[in-house]
Design a protein around this nucleic acid. Structure first.
Lengths: 247, 247
DNA sequence: CGGTCGTTTGATTACGATCAAACGAAGTGG
DNA sequence: CCACTTCGTTTGATCGTAATCAAACGACCG
């Protein structure tokens, strides 16, 4: 289903929204040395403990990062959509500290770590925007710590649904608080630190109260203001307005 | 109690362990433009929503980052010790998405965001090491998501005690799995997503089972192997061996 | 048409929260 | 120097949210 001639445009557009790029930077990014790979739904891109020599850029589809505890429980750490880097950290850290798996069939570009590093360190505008990208990633991790650490089940689920809505919309993959969420309830549960059974009950309740409605994987946020309230959601941590001026 | 002539040596040593620096880089770091500030215990360094113009470097003492939920609950997001940057992200993102507060009296160096940014973007070796610093920060956040999301109370507490031990030792602030932890049980609870009452019970139990012993704020890990096991602790995420070669 | 995967619902359990109170140490003021 | 307060720790009793266990159902697929 995803396009067979994927481009780097989405990634460049995303980066550019955060920090200005020159025409040469744009060209350098769009023509970075890379190889393409198509990964089936549920396929692994990186495994915890790997020593990857590439950074993966998601060109189409969805993916997520996760860790498994000693007890065998899975915690999903982040969700990624087309245009996002999946493991920029592998450009600088040599051992993967978590795994990355696709949610849907996906196309990824593998960019050698060395190449990413060189781009980031020799072209200030690119370094700046990639750095901001990393920092926003970290900001989302912090919010997730709060979400699983201090919010009750209703709020956790509502919060993540709000986050998805804004991120998908920013990526051009949703509009009007309506989107296709390619995750099972079990995956959702592993993202918010609950069981799938309980997530199911929370979703049902949110539906009954008119905050959302669902049809298969399609989700409509019927009452954004209330869902936002229930989820204690403040979008500041997404830094979507991060139009930081150039130095 | 902290020294009155704090230096940047600790920070430089930390950064250098991760990625090599030239003599000129070292000098540039040690003589960065900055101002000093002394903050009492419990004082705020940054507040959520601030628009800070500086990055703070902790020269002595301890600090932590946190967020408050709509319900008024606090989640501590990270703990910091002398030599660490408290908010490198403020060099590139203009709105603080969380607060930073001291645990003890502390000395901090305020470095203008512009200056940090220029250093990072014009000196590749510095950019590289600061980037790695940011990436390791993010790796710790990810582990904390797992800790609060998927581990039971015993494991959560044990895990964070293990993390502290290794980080303090790496910073030269502890040895032999023995350290002074300047946190109340309530702060510990807010770091692991539990209540202080429950943290107290877990600590008591860990003590009774001979895994740790305590005297005031002094903590001794009596049985590292077992505590590590109970806490499902694998130090890989700390990337202390991140002696990544230069490009 | 059977089989697998994901969703949904029900019944019961348990872990950690909450409420409450006492205790000890350190600091303050009379 | 000693009451008195404050802050943090400790312990006990009870409660409630979400986990667990179990089973049925629906959709999609070969």
């Amino acid at each position: 289903m995803p396009d067979l001639h994927p481009t780097f445009d989405g990634m460049v557009r995303r980066l550019e929204r955060r920090s200005p790029l020159g025409e040469d930077d744009r060209r350098a990014l769009k023509h970075v040395q890379h190889s393409l790979r198509r990964v089936p739904a549920g396929g692994h891109i990186i495994r915890d403990g790997d020593r990857p020599e590439y950074c993966s850029l998601l060109l189409s589809g969805f993916a997520y990062r996760y860790k498994i505890t000693g007890e065998g429980a899975r915690q999903i750490i982040s969700i990624h959509m087309a245009g996002e880097f999946l493991d920029l950290q592998n450009g600088f850290l040599q051992l993967a500290d978590h795994s990355v798996q696709t949610l849907t069939e996906a196309e990824i570009a593998l960019i050698p770590s060395q190449v990413i590093e060189e781009l980031a360190l020799t072209r200030p505008a690119i370094g700046r925007t990639l750095w901001i990208d990393t920092l926003i990633d970290a900001s989302i991790f912090r919010e997730w710590v709060v979400n699983v650490g201090r919010r009750d089940s209703r709020a956790r689920v509502a919060h993540i649904l709000c986050e998805f809505s804004l991120r998908l919309e920013a990526a051009g993959l949703a509009k009007g608080h309506t989107y296709e969420l390619p995750m099972t309830q079990e995956q959702l549960a592993d993202a918010v630190g609950l069981t799938s059974v309980h997530v199911n009950r929370v979703l049902k309740q949110l539906g009954e109260q008119g905050l959302i409605s669902r049809d298969k994987r399609r989700l409509v946020i019927e009452d954004w203001a209330r869902l936002r309230d229930v989820g204690d959601f403040n979008e500041r941590y997404l830094h979507h307005d991060a139009t930081a001026m150039a130095a």
